[in-house]
Nucleic acid binder design. Sequence first.
DNA 1: CTGCAAGTTGAAGTTCACTTCAACTCAAGG
DNA 2: CCTTGAGTTGAAGTGAACTTCAACTTGCAG
Lengths: 151, 151
Amino acid sequence: MHESLTIGQLSARSGVAPSALRYYERLGLIRAERTGGNQRRYARTELRRVAFVRISQQVGISLEEIREALDSLPSSRTPTPDDWAALSSAWRERLDEKIRLLGKLRDDLDGCIGCGCLSLQRCKLNNPEDSLAGEGPGARLVLPRADVTRE
Amino acid sequence: MHESLTIGQLSARSGVAPSALRYYERLGLIRAERTGGNQRRYARTELRRVAFVRISQQVGISLEEIREALDSLPSSRTPTPDDWAALSSAWRERLDEKIRLLGKLRDDLDGCIGCGCLSLQRCKLNNPEDSLAGEGPGARLVLPRADVTRE
DNA sequence: CTGCAAGTTGAAGTTCACTTCAACTCAAGG
DNA sequence: CCTTGAGTTGAAGTGAACTTCAACTTGCAG
């Protein structure tokens, strides 16, 4: 009971329900060994993967995208700190983008908006990469690219 | 065609599908006047509300929470910059929390993890408010509070 | 070896955030 | 007046992220 964790233990330690952990496994986000009696046993490194999943999720990244990121970790051996660092640099851009978006929203709320201009789309927000027509949850309609900047 | 926008115009300018705009209205996120023929006409300030919704959404905040935030804006008159600033300070804490979470994930990925320790739960991440047992999408099971810090 | 909490599976149910559809009405140009 | 594109509604469908349920098996403490 030191080398590997049962699903209940991983659940307690990560704060993620057992049903969710099984679901994550089906999606390929985490992996587990099996005992002779077919029960899951998790390596302690899976705890880190779960934490990565939950934090990423909380900032609006889908499980599918998280899976893609985690796929960059080696599957044959236990990921080393270097492996995680590599994932990190790929992920960093994504996170920086989110941080930028958040900072912009926050600053514009008591900055740009305070200046009296009419729309969030104007001022600092009117540069091209700020398109709001990006990702969102749910089914999606492909729109002919929004006219976000005019008037 | 200068004072108010049709749903098609608001859709084009915000990058949000008409069906989504109607959905937002049902949830009380945006409001519209009606013409004699029962068509929606949006004040130009609704553009700002839509932008607020989309950005907030993209960083993982639910429409329900966004609605609560928007409810702090006055419904009787057009929101002034001051009204938005008030909303902002309430929202700021939320955004700061998200930004902190993101920064932590990013830094830990090529910092703490690089140091060789075993789990994201340790090092800088082991203080109480960092509980991962927070919000996520989908139905939810109330767990008996995760043991996130030990071992 | 017995009991029982904890684990297993597959199928079905739930919530959120939408979209799609059908059937219909409105608005503006020619 | 007629057409046509844009708008209206309610109901049903979709995909993501889970949970719940039923029926069953494992693993460990006594």
